[in-house]
Design a protein around this nucleic acid. Sequence first.
DNA 1: GAAAAATGGATTTTT
DNA 2: TCCATTTTTC
Length: 675
Amino acid sequence: MVQKYVLKGAPAPPLDLKVGYKNALNESQFAVVTQADGACLVLAGAGSGKTRTLIYRVAYLLEKGVRPEEILLVTFTNKAAQEMRGRVESLLQTKAKGLWCGTFHHIGHRILRRWAREAGLKEHFGILDEEDSRDLIKTCIKALPKGPSDARLPKPGVVQSILSFSVNAGKTIAEVVAKNYPYFAGFIGEFEKIKQGYEERKKRTGHLDYDDLLFQWMGLLKSSESVRRTLTEQFRYCLVDEYQDTNRLQHELMGILSCRHRNILVVGDDAQSIYSFRAAEVRNILDFPEKYEHSKIFKLETNYRSTKAILELANESIRHNIHQFPKTLHNVRPGGARPQLARVRDMRQQADFIAQRISEMNEAGVGLSEIAVLFRAHYQAAELELELARRGIPYLVRGGIRFFEQAHVKDALAYLRIAANPLDELAWTRALTLQPGIGATYAEKIFESAGKEKGGFEKVFSHDFGAYFSPKIREGLGVFKRTMKALLKEEVNGHPDLMLEAVLENGYNKQVLVSFDNAQERLEDLRQLVNFAHTYKNLRDFLADVTLREGFRGESLLETRLLEKDVEELVLSTIHQAKGLEWHAVFVISISEGQFPHAKSMEDEDQLEEERRLFYVAATRAKEELILVHPMTRYDYSVGTVINRPSLFVEELSKRVLEEVEVEESEEEETIYLD
DNA sequence: GAAAAATGGATTTTT
DNA sequence: TCCATTTTTC
């Protein structure tokens, strides 16, 4: 398609419907696509073609002549962003070059790089992932002046969540502690000191953490009028997906960015808001009409995914929530089997029952990849995993440690990070402590003396540096220096793939062999990483992407996209991670009191409603078959075997929407496994 | 700095 | 119960 450019104020050229909007959309979707100017709230129920609507809206705008760089389309995951961009492009049969499409963090990063100076940041700032940030907080805790009470100070990870929550929610540390961590009220002063130290260290080493990508972005918009004017002028259309998951900071960012042209379209489903624990606020979507006067509200209530029987259960369940925009999903798919509630004796029998039913379904012609087992928490799947492995049913557990967060990947990257930013103390420590004989203490000493070295950091990697250390330290330091020298060679430096290769060849390969029991797998991972790095010409872009990109264990980088569609694997997933996905048959396990809703959420009305929304998300993942499983007993390590009542969410449902089925004792129940 | 012993925590998780 | 992390000890 030929790109059209429209001068501001000129009438839009007539729309030639190359893209078949009318045929592809239902009436309400079409209304959104063609009429959603100004401030618009699209309440999109589960399975209502929300993504599709958003994609067509963007395509429509582009066809109408809006330039790609004038559109800002924000999502929560890279995957969603990639998919949307891809689908827009395939609709229009052209590259949407210049379209601002990405996650909040991604877009913040892009803007901060562009205006680093105006934002008061180092030109080559690096990004800390969660682990890096936690490590840094740990050192700040250690650096705290010793008092009589710090014995009981919470762990770095906990401090990290408090600080992070406070940034994202736009609240003071004291407020966050009072609301979410009342039992830490005595530590507020310490938290503030840690925060202060943390900020100083980040500044000194030239780092931003994930939250900073939003916070500094906001700071930039507030402090630089010219940047604010440029951006608000530029983004004629702002669109946000999954708005119910936005936190205060993100909500305010969108408010500012859209203030000039006032075209803000937010899409979401308040009934699927399940991320309050990381500062998402349903209020952002619920109060949208008040914040934006004269805003239009569209409702997408037609569900294309599930059968009538499944929707009846979902609708009835969510009706128990008070705080919501009431809406009822209408089915297009008639009838269907009533969802089932299977009562089983315990977790073992649950695993057995599910494996059995899956085998039967599979024999009846349902592909394994069309079935999912969902749960509230990962540990609930342990027994099931064993049983599936025993029966040889292939499965994939979504989640777990992310690819880029695995130790061997981070080790290898540490060397590159030093090359990119010699002030990156975390990276120095990481790379140095890989050497036998060098621990945290020596790493710090080496880093310090490296900083004092005249003639810059390159000098450090030369032969004579560190002569005053003991022979053992010198040996480890020697290996480190050799590696660094190899990757600072002129023909290597700056090319992430060559640099990684240099790291591997100069000793890290061997390191992997001695450090990890599954060394071969990890070496393969690293080879994949080199391949992946090959697509980058620039070291800083590579490092930034690697920290900003999600990625799961078991997915090797290049194969992922190719294989994704045709692998026949059963999916095991938390409900959180299943959002947005769908399967022919869905099992939800451990539907019992104390498990789901989670025990800790029972006291608080808001939390209970969130749990119910989670149940709603789980139920609406199923297209044809929904099976809830309730283990009637549970083994608790402190009290032994206890009786488990069924989940509140099941008890409050009428018999009309849920069928109870008896599960027969399996014959091989008493089998004892040796291992 | 490494190994052994003790402690504590056990929801969800993207970037 | 079981794992990860921290503290203690050598």
